[in-house]
Every structure is written in structure tokens, then in C-alpha cells.
Design a protein around this nucleic acid. Structure first.
Lengths: 130, 130
DNA sequence: TTTGAATTGTTATAATATAACACTATGTAA
DNA sequence: TTACATAGTGTTATATTATAACAATTCAAA
């Protein structure tokens, strides 16, 4: 299907941390958490994050400057992402809806242009906060 | 329809600048451009930007940390936005498609939850860059 | 006319992200 | 094996984006 990327040491450390986290993590929070593993500088974190985003193992929540592990097997390399964000508790969930992704992938703008890459962030209140 | 907001001096200066700009503007570029008008500090810019976003006169392009004037009369107070972004020349266009906004406003997630606020950013190549 | 909410001005600082450069590991093709 | 390219690492410094805190001012509504 898609190339399996063998993560390097830094990438693996940072991916594991994000993957275990129940919520999206910010870069400097990641840095703080991995300093005991020898990752000392922001750039080491950002480089790993860039790569992990590139290969689809994590996604960036643009409106929050935070990173979340991808749990949607179908978007491992895809850059077509959708999230719901609770404006009270900040709970963030990746949306994997075949109909939504189909609709967006087929959407044509005024010029007839289609886009395979997109990022969609929905805002509202989650079940608990309603 | 919606309340007309009278912009304050700083808000007006900053809105005018963004509105005249052919491309989205970043906060510190705005600051540089309005210093001759007496706006000297980042916070003065950010406060005006916050307000202008709140009332729907401008939108923030989250993936670019840049601000663009709204030219879509139907979203003056709405927080339901969609943009296309050219990955080469960085041309950014607000998309106003009734069918897209209708689809997204009616989209229900797994929990049956609907969202009136969203931000969608499409990435691809514009006509010129293709 | 006073009073309350929003806005302003200012200094300082926090949070997010990249530049530049030397060095190291790893895969691959001659 | 050698050597070559590509990707990753470690490090220091710095750039970019954004907010905290507090005092002063404006301005419209009661």
C-alpha cells in the first residue's frame, strides 16, 4: 500500500510521546517531555515533527499549533484531514468520514479546480460540554 | 441583517491596509506598515486583528498566520470559512460556494454532532502555477 | 452625569519556529 | 569495500508570532 517509514531515534521518541498523549501536544511541551531522553533543542523537536507530519504519522492542528497522532489508517500519507474541536474543553478528534472526504476531494472551485490536500477544522461544543 | 460595527481608529487603519492588500498580510508586516500612522506596538495590531476577526471583517489563514479581508458579504459575522492556497505562489482565495457551505453546515459527525463554525483550507496549485 | 464596557498606549515577556554550520549515520551503487 | 549521496543529528543563535499586566482614555447608554 504505502511505504513503511522506519522512524529514526528522535522521530520514534517524539511519535511515541504524541501517540500516548490523550490530547494534542505543543512543540515545547514535547520538548520538555523528551529532555530526559537527550533531546535538548527545539530544532530537534521541530525536525522530527516536520518529518512525522510529512509521512502522515501525526497531524498539525493549525488553529492550536498542536500535534496529534493519526489514528486513521487510510490517511497515513494523505494530507486530507478533518478535526472537530471543542471550544470549551479543547477536546480534539480526528474525523474520518468517507462521505466527507469524498465530498471534499471532489469539490471544484469556481475555476473548476480540485484539491487533494486540505485541512478542515470544525468548532463547536463536545458532548460533555453541551 | 447584521449589526454594522463602527470601527475605531486603529481598527480602521488596519482594516484599510489589509483590505487594499492583494495578498494576506502577517501581523508584523502590518505593524511595519502602520507605524507611520502612530501604531507602534504589536499588541495594538493584535487587538485590532482580534476584533476584526471577531466581527467577520477579516479572516485568519491559520496555516499561514496571515490575515485577509473578507469579500464575501454572506459571512460578515460567520466563522464558516474556506480558502484555496497555492503551494507555489502562495496565492490565497476565499471560496464562497453555497453548496460547500451548505454541505459543511449540515455535516454530522459520528455522534450526530453538527458544527456551524469551521475553517477549511484547500492546498494545490493555482491556474498560473499548474 | 456618571458609570461601565471597550479601546488605547506602553513596557516587558512568553510562545512558536527557523537559520546556519559542522558533524554523523545509513543506504546504495560502482 | 569504497565512495557517494541523502537524510538525520547536535548546537548556538536568532527570528517570528503572540500575550501579560497595568494605567489612562474614550464613548455610548442609563
Amino acid at each position: 500500500m504505502h511505504k513503511e517509514h522506519t522512524l529514526t531515534k528522535n522521530q520514534q521518541i517524539i511519535f511515541d510521546l504524541i501517540d500516548k498523549s490523550p490530547e494534542p501536544m505543543k512543540a515545547y511541551s514535547i520538548l520538555f517531555n523528551v529532555q530526559k531522553k537527550g533531546i535538548k533543542a527545539p530544532l530537534q523537536v521541530y525536525r522530527a515533527l516536520d518529518k512525522l507530519v510529512e509521512i502522515g504519522k501525526i497531524h498539525k492542528i493549525e488553529s492550536r499549533n498542536a500535534f496529534i497522532a493519526c489514528h486513521n489508517s487510510s490517511c497515513q500519507v494523505s494530507k486530507a484531514t478533518a478535526f472537530s474541536i471543542c471550544e470549551i474543553c479543547e477536546k480534539i478528534t480526528e474525523i474520518s468520514s468517507a462521505s466527507l472526504s469524498k465530498y471534499l476531494a471532489n469539490f471544484k472551485d469556481k475555476d473548476g479546480m480540485k484539491y487533494s490536500k486540505y485541512n478542515l477544522e470544525f468548532f463547536g461544543l463536545c458532548k460533555k460540554c453541551r
